[in-house]
């Protein structure tokens, strides 16, 4: 059971502290930007540009986002003493293995993007968080205000097109477009022509709820995996269009126990179809990976 006073406290904290952090620093909580941007330095991604790859730190910080519930009290105490971006070392960090894995994923997403958008850049330490958490928790006014700031932020830096790497960021931009008329064109990297993308392996796909039921990408994802040479095992009752259950990720920030229960249930149904699962979202990966062998699409392909 979720404690009611705990929810009230969390709501106030998000409204008063996390939103303030976003307003001041474009980040919901302190994070280690050196870790988050290391992949781009290694890949030699140009800084800035008219077209940018926008990660919103989702792949780099998914383990931290998952433990947001535990993180909130620390965020609150740090905010009270007036620190933020410089204190990443005091917070939960992804492990070295997790950082390495995220780096592989992002380098491949970058390579896919570069094939059809030569010269695509990245904002490195300046990159802002998308604000997805505000929308998901119903802070609509704050979400809209933050969206206006984001649009201005990108325009000042000369950004004319945004390529996103995950469903939550893509959905945030789609919601900004719907709610405030966000005018910068954006696409998810999966929507780009998959030039030279090949891979191998046999998987059951766990569809991200956002990709399959909000952004209508169910067919695109199956076509993409098939064209890349991956063997996909589907079962209409487990992975059919619109049918797939959630990994439990969206509930993680407020109730990690129930979120884990959902992940276990989803992993068991996926296992009944195939021993190894394929995901397209860093939060799906985080939730499911303790219970079933799982890979992200961008780590099993070679662009």
């Amino acid at each position: 059971m979720v404690d009611e006073s705990s929810i009230k406290g969390t709501l106030k904290l998000i409204r008063d502290v996390v939103y303030k952090n976003l307003t001041n620093e474009y980040l919901p909580f302190p994070m280690d930007k050196a870790l988050a941007t290391k992949w781009a330095y290694e890949a030699g991604v140009p800084k800035g540009g008219r077209v940018i790859l926008y990660t919103s730190y989702m792949y780099q910080m998914a383990p931290v986002f998952k433990s947001f519930e535990k993180l909130l009290p620390t965020v609150g105490s740090l905010a009270r003493i007036g620190f933020l971006a410089s204190l990443g070392s005091r917070l939960v960090k992804p492990s070295d293995a997790e950082v390495k894995r995220a780096s592989t994923v992002l380098k491949n997403i970058y390579a896919i993007t570069r094939a059809s958008r030569p010269g695509v850049g990245y904002l490195y330490e300046e990159e802002p968080y998308s604000g997805a958490l505000l929308y998901e928790l119903g802070f609509i006014d704050e979400f809209k205000e933050y969206g206006k700031r984001l649009e201005e932020f990108f325009k000042i830096r000369g950004v004319e097109e945004i390529i996103t790497a995950d469903p939550h960021t893509t959905f945030s931009l789609a919601n900004y477009k719907r709610l405030i008329g966000f005018s910068i064109p954006f696409k998810n990297y999966l929507e780009l022509p998959p030039i030279g993308v090949t891979g191998k392996g046999r998987f059951v796909i766990h569809d991200s709820c956002i990709y399959s039921r909000f952004l209508n990408m169910y067919d695109l994802i199956r076509q993409l995996t098939k064209d890349a040479g991956l063997e996909i095992v589907d079962d209409e009752k487990v992975t059919g269009r619109g049918i797939g259950f959630c990994c439990g990720g969206p509930l993680g920030p407020l109730n990690s126990k129930i979120s884990d229960e959902m992940a276990k249930a989803r992993a068991n149904s996926l296992k009944s179809v195939n021993p190894e699962a394929l995901v397209f979202c860093p939060l799906c990966y985080e939730n499911l990976s303790p219970y079933i062998p799982v890979k992200d699409f961008a780590e099993v392909i070679s662009p």
Binding site: V2, I7, C209, R213, C246, G248, G249, P250, L251, M262
Partner: peptide
Amino acid sequence: PEDAVESIYSCNTCRRCLV
């Protein structure tokens, strides 16, 4: 709102029910 909060915040917003 106090009586509804736990139910409303236990939703995954996954849209499975809409199907």
